[in-house]
Nucleic acid binder design. Structure first.
Lengths: 120, 120
DNA sequence: TTCAATTGTTACTTAAAAGTGCCTACATTA
DNA sequence: TAATGTAGGCACTTTTAAGTAACAATTGAA
């Protein structure tokens, strides 16, 4: 069994990693289909997306809902337990925003424009 | 220049990575010397510790204070900017604690005992 | 003189994370 | 009949992260 030196490491095991917080930040706004998530995260590959979603599901922070239709439709959303992360996710998003403003005089330079998608 | 799709990615660039949040959680309680940090994080290597500290310093969230004595004494502490992460770090620590309690019936199994060190 | 103590660097190796390309399933539509 | 759209699996390669081990610098103490 994995051992932690301090409890915060357990939190990092759940939401650490390159994409998980980003996924959760999207799901906190709305439930999303796989394809929507892919469009919202242009850098992610199908494999990584599936992999991260599976792990988040295993840890109980998101729900996976499969609709029995063709072509398939799968929707992901935050679970009740996932909502317990809302405070952390909100703070992280806010800190990221002000960090960008502090670090880059005109933030347009570092934020990819997403006019072609539904607003994020 | 690195581009972000959503601002939270900028936050992850600063505090993401295997050790940074753990380091910050220690520094939020007290300033620490290099050797103290090493003892508090038994899993980390000298190289990783130095590397993560350098990056945190570059991003302006910690301070490095060198005392001119032999053998050398170097102390790390949160900068003012680093303190702006306090809310996030506190929430993360709290979430980690309750996640352990929820996930493991008797948490003694997953938390490494640290009776031999100064209390963390 | 040689060792201990503390912090740090560097080159090299290993392990983990992520990317790539190709494959499946199947009802609908052209 | 063949193509479309959606979600995902799998084997393989590449890239990145992390670990290992040896070395440096300094000065007081043994």
């Amino acid at each position: 069994m994995k051992k932690y030196n301090i409890p915060v490491e357990a939190a990092l095991e759940v939401i650490g990693g390159k994409w998980k917080v980003v996924i959760l930040c999207h799901l906190i706004k709305d439930k999303r289909r796989t394809g929507e998530l892919k469009r919202l995260m242009p850098g992610i590959t199908q494999k990584m997306l599936t992999q991260q979603l599976r792990e988040l599901e295993e840890d109980g922070v998101i729900l996976r809902e499969v609709y029995n239709q063709v072509p398939p439709r799968v929707e992901y959303s935050l679970s009740d337990y996932g909502w317990s992360l809302k405070g952390i996710l909100d703070s992280l998003c806010a800190w990221g925003e002000q960090h960008i403003e502090k670090t880059y005089p005109n933030k347009e330079e570092v934020l990819v424009q997403t006019e072609e998608l539904e607003q994020v």
